[in-house]
Computed example of a mutant assay.
Amino acid sequence: MRYSILDLSNVPEGRTAADAIANSVDLARHAEQWGYHRYWLAEHHNMEGIASAATAILIGHIAGATRSIRVGAGGIMLGNHMPLAVAEQFGTLATMYPNRIDLGLGRAPGGDMNVMRAMYRPGRDDFPTDVAQLQALLGPTRPGAPLRAIPGEATEVPLWILGSSLYGAQFAAQQGLPYAFASHFAPDALEDAFAVYRDRFQPSKQQATPHAMLAINVFAADTEQEARRLRSSMQQAFANLRSGNPGKLPAPVDDIEAVLGTQMTRAIDQALRVTACGTRDQVRDQIAALIEAHNPDEIILTGGIHDHTARLRSFELAADAVQSLTALAA
């Protein structure tokens, strides 16, 4: 079971975007040592608490600071960009870091209405056409073609489809592409999406068989109490986002219900229910249960933790937990 990291490059309260980027680089270096397979970053805009807006630039920075871990986008919001620009960016990355770059694609704007207006491309709202154009631009060399991505052509950068609904599952299946489901914050359609994807999958040049990735929030610590405290930062951040007041990643609290109230806490926990939280052994058991329930081909772990040292420890314990599952299976 391959295990990877999805990093939003969160900016903690009291810190800056520069701190967040430095923390992401440090986490990626450690993740490589701990056996993580991929390190993905997500495109978000106009958000004070997320430093990964220029996703391709940050991917290049992290790829240059590491040696072997795959680095990619989880994902690029394709509606915000022309396919040629994306092909050139990721073609350049793949040329600089061969066989290490992934390109996950999503349909959401990655921000609010202000972002949608600022990023709007007149006359273009056709995700399937954009994906097909990307595949052509990153595919085999086409001498004489009127439009070519240089660098880009012949790099065959692996494409992934990201989603939280049945549309993405259907499209990924039709195109024969790997599929990553956003179960870490929108798990309602998870079971149906995986079933649709696997039932309708059509083999392609890139992918002969279905390959589904499950996203899991992870908060691991040496004690269950500390893990729950670490989790409170993400609970607060998600509540702030839902309330229309996004900001930097809040500091943890001991009693989340005292801050959010019982009703809001329950609603947030329901949305974030694909979560493993606790000690190393508790996280191992919870991840094992999620794997048994959904049978993913790969898992990707994420988790907004305010203190960088605690975040490193959490992902270290999570890696050890997943490795122990592999050992048990063997």
Rank of each mutant, 00 (worst) to 15 (best):
I5Q: 10
D7S: 07
P12V: 02
R15V: 04
A18K: 10
D19C: 11
V25S: 05
R29C: 13
H30Q: 11
W34M: 11
E48H: 00
I57F: 14
I57R: 07
G60R: 00
G60S: 01
A65N: 09
A65Q: 11
S68Q: 13
I69P: 09
V71P: 07
G72W: 06
G72S: 08
G75C: 13
H81C: 08
H81M: 08
H81A: 08
M82A: 15
A87Q: 13
T95S: 14
T95E: 14
Y97A: 01
D102N: 12
L103E: 11
L105D: 12
L105S: 10
P109I: 08
A118W: 05
R121T: 05
P122H: 05
G123H: 04
F127I: 12
Q133A: 15
L138G: 12
P143W: 12
G144P: 07
R148C: 14
A149Q: 02
I150G: 09
G152C: 01
G152P: 04
A154C: 11
P158D: 08
P158E: 09
W160A: 06
S165F: 06
S165T: 13
A169M: 03
Q170F: 09
A172S: 06
A172L: 05
A173E: 12
A173P: 07
Q174V: 07
Q175M: 15
G176N: 11
L177W: 14
P178M: 08
F181C: 06
H184L: 01
F185L: 02
L190M: 10
L190F: 06
L190E: 05
A193L: 10
A195S: 12
V196H: 10
V196L: 13
V196A: 11
Y197N: 08
D199G: 04
F201E: 05
T209C: 09
T209S: 12
L214S: 00
L214W: 00
I216N: 01
A221D: 15
D222T: 08
T223E: 01
R231A: 12
S232F: 02
S232D: 08
M234A: 01
Q235S: 04
Q236F: 00
Q236P: 00
N240C: 04
N245I: 01
P246F: 04
P246Q: 04
P252E: 06
P252T: 03
P252I: 01
D254R: 00
T262D: 15
Q270L: 06
L272I: 09
T279L: 11
T279G: 14
R280H: 10
R280V: 11
D281Y: 03
Q282I: 15
A289T: 14
A293F: 06
N295G: 05
P296T: 07
T302E: 11
G303V: 01
G303D: 11
I305K: 01
I305N: 04
H308Q: 15
L312M: 08
E316D: 15
E316S: 12
L317Q: 05
A321Q: 04
V322N: 02
L328P: 05
